[in-house]
Simulated assay, not measured.
Amino acid sequence: MIQYALKCAEGHTFDSWFQSADAFDKLAGAGMVQCVVCGSTRVEKALMAPRVSHGRDTDAPQPPAAEAPERPLTAPANAAEQALAELKRKIEENSEYVGMNFAEEARAIHEGEAPERPIYGEAKTEEARALIEDGVPVTPLPFLPNRKAN
């Protein structure tokens, strides 16, 4: 696993873990790496200091690190990330996750074939475009939903 400091085209910085350098390149090339603040897929590696194991005695005093203090990857770093985390929490608490069935379920609700309720999920670009063109009220979310499994 490798951790990269990342930066989007809008200047937002964040970090993420990848299986390898090749994995990052493949995912970024496919547009699957998104900014955690604005959702942009124009993301590149930011300048970062490498972490090198020096092999010295771990009880010996270490020089102070020149980098920002570490934080869990899930902890919001700034006000924008905190607002996004709160929005995600509210949506997940007050809506039903319908996964990849989102387009079908949204259309069924709109046409009165399914009970009206707040839902969220995932849809292909073509499916989302068709919903919008047909007047089904949907909006993209600025985050990826937690995938719920059995």
Rank of each mutant, 00 (worst) to 15 (best):
F14T: 10
F14P: 06
W17H: 04
F18K: 07
S20A: 12
A21W: 03
A21V: 12
D22S: 09
A23V: 12
A23I: 14
F24L: 14
D25L: 07
D25W: 02
D25C: 09
L27F: 09
G31I: 13
G31V: 14
G31Q: 05
G31H: 07
C35Q: 04
V36Y: 00
V36F: 00
V36A: 04
V36M: 03
V37W: 06
C38Y: 07
G39S: 11
G39V: 08
T41S: 13
T41E: 10
V43T: 03
E44A: 13
K45W: 03
A46K: 00
A46F: 07
L47Y: 08
M48R: 06
A49F: 05
R51D: 14
R51A: 15
V52F: 10
H54L: 15
R56S: 15
D57R: 10
D57W: 02
D57T: 08
T58M: 09
D59K: 00
D59W: 00
P61F: 09
P61I: 10
Q62K: 09
Q62H: 04
Q62T: 10
P63N: 13
A65P: 00
A65G: 06
A65D: 10
A66H: 06
E67D: 06
A68V: 15
P69S: 04
E70W: 10
R71L: 13
P72V: 07
L73C: 08
L73D: 12
A75M: 12
P76T: 08
P76H: 04
N78W: 03
N78E: 07
A79K: 00
A79N: 01
A79W: 00
A80V: 07
E81H: 09
E81S: 07
E86M: 08
L87A: 14
K88L: 06
R89L: 10
R89N: 03
K90R: 15
I91A: 07
E93D: 08
N94I: 09
N94W: 07
N94P: 00
N94H: 15
V98S: 03
V98H: 05
V98P: 01
G99F: 02
N101F: 00
F102C: 07
A103C: 04
A103I: 01
E104T: 13
E105S: 06
A106C: 10
R107Y: 04
R107T: 07
R107L: 12
A108K: 09
A108E: 02
E111T: 13
E111A: 09
E111W: 05
G112T: 10
A114C: 11
P115F: 10
P115I: 15
E116I: 14
R117L: 14
P118E: 13
P118T: 14
P118Q: 12
I119E: 01
G121I: 02
G121L: 03
G121M: 02
G121T: 06
A123M: 04
K124Q: 11
K124G: 13
T125E: 12
T125R: 05
T125V: 05
A128P: 01
A128W: 00
R129I: 12
L131I: 10
D134E: 14
D134C: 09
G135V: 09
V136H: 01
P137E: 05
T139V: 15
P140I: 02
P140W: 01
P140H: 05
P140D: 14
P140K: 15
L141A: 12
P142A: 15
P142M: 02
F143W: 14
F143M: 08
F143Y: 15
F143N: 11
L144K: 14
N146Y: 02
N146K: 08
R147W: 06
R147P: 01
A149H: 08
A149I: 02
